[in-house]
Design a protein around this nucleic acid. Structure first.
Lengths: 207, 207
DNA sequence: GTTTGTGAATTCCTTCACAGCT
DNA sequence: AGCTGTGAAGGAATTCACAAAC
């Protein structure tokens, strides 16, 4: 709870999960929750939840628990989710198109407002009301539209080059769908979506 | 290196990454690598790589490094990837169809050989040569075809129920695409693919 | 009586550093 | 000389346990 102590990244990774569980409970009509009940719901220990929250402040009441609605609000603010984040997609092949059409982002405040590809035959085409631009226009477009998040859906073979080329733009966070382990400078935040890796680590536990 | 010491899960999660980097280097013509070079490539410390590998055996040669080809082979064996894993998909909506058509699984040994849905109008339909069956047939089909892995692409609202219903089948691992935090008994292994959660944890670091 | 918030204790993971092999 | 494999050291994250608040 000191204002600017460093918060472990594992904690940050759990907060969205808390929000999600809390939201679900709220929509089921519940208004108050204890760390015990939330922990039970998410299969984490109550102590962990309390400790995680304590990095940011004191949100509960002894003997009572947490008011769900205001806890959601606090966590939303902490993560910077109380606003819309405009983002762009790079690579508009099969996967890129599926991502553009995925309805799960907008309700959570993530809106794809620009699309880029390097295939000349695609440029100018529209997908879900978004015009596909040449990849050369990333830097300027991103600057003009204040986009900080890029979603990467290019082939593995060029993903590293694209990431490297994003370094000197206004892009600060990358959600990478290409099945590679890219090198990123620590000025960029990266998360990988990689179902194959997930599968490969599960088979260890199967006989 | 004791035969049956318990290996931390974080280690298991890194092994597929090692395989991937090694494969790439092999395909670029390299035959030998040091922990230093591999660490540099993946942005992890050389000591961590050596320690990770030491849980399973001694694969390098002092003064020389690791023979890439045989290290890949060893890791592949350790993870149980030296075989094909037949799997099934549950939920054949837009997302499910995209997953069935995703070309990245088969080359890695993961083949979707059965599909299930609860929408009567879809049953009997074929997607990419796979017939959609009623979700009621999961238990028997999975048993007959020796399927241990299920890929879940159902709506969030029914995902938990589907997972629960898988408990008394031969399914032992679930790759879940539904945006929920499901409760799973510890007899099941679960990995979530959840781009929204990834995005939500990145915004914390953006101003 | 219940449940939080938090220092202290514990457990887990990473890194160090060097003996030993090539 | 170069690099692995590994105990030992160090650091990080989790859990304990209890005083304080309701």
């Amino acid at each position: 709870m000191p204002k600017e102590s460093i918060v472990p990244e594992v904690v940050i990774l759990r907060l969205p999960l808390y929000i999600r569980a809390l939201s679900q409970m709220l929509s089921e009509g519940q208004t108050v929750i204890s760390s015990n009940e939330l922990g039970n719901r998410l299969q984490v220990t109550p102590a962990q939840i309390r400790k995680d929250l304590s990095y940011f402040g004191r949100f509960g009441k002894q003997g009572r628990g947490y008011k769900i609605e205001s806890l959601i609000e606090e966590l939303t603010k902490i993560l910077g989710l109380n606003r819309q984040w405009d983002s762009c997609i790079v690579g508009v092949g099969r996967l890129g198109k599926a991502i553009i059409n995925y309805p799960g982002f907008v309700p959570e405040g993530f809106k794809i407002i620009a699309a880029f590809d390097n295939d000349p035959s695609k440029i100018g085409e529209n997908v879900n009301e978004i015009e596909i631009l040449s990849i050369k226009k990333i830097k300027s477009t991103v600057e003009k539209k204040n986009i900080k998040i890029a979603i990467l859906a290019v082939p593995a073979s060029i993903a590293q080059d694209v990431i490297t080329s994003l370094v000197d733009t206004k892009i600060k966070a990358i959600l990478n769908y290409a099945p590679i382990a890219p090198k990123v400078p620590d000025t960029l935040i990266l998360r990988n979506i990689d179902p194959v890796l997930s599968l490969q680590s599960m088979t260890y536990y199967l006989d």
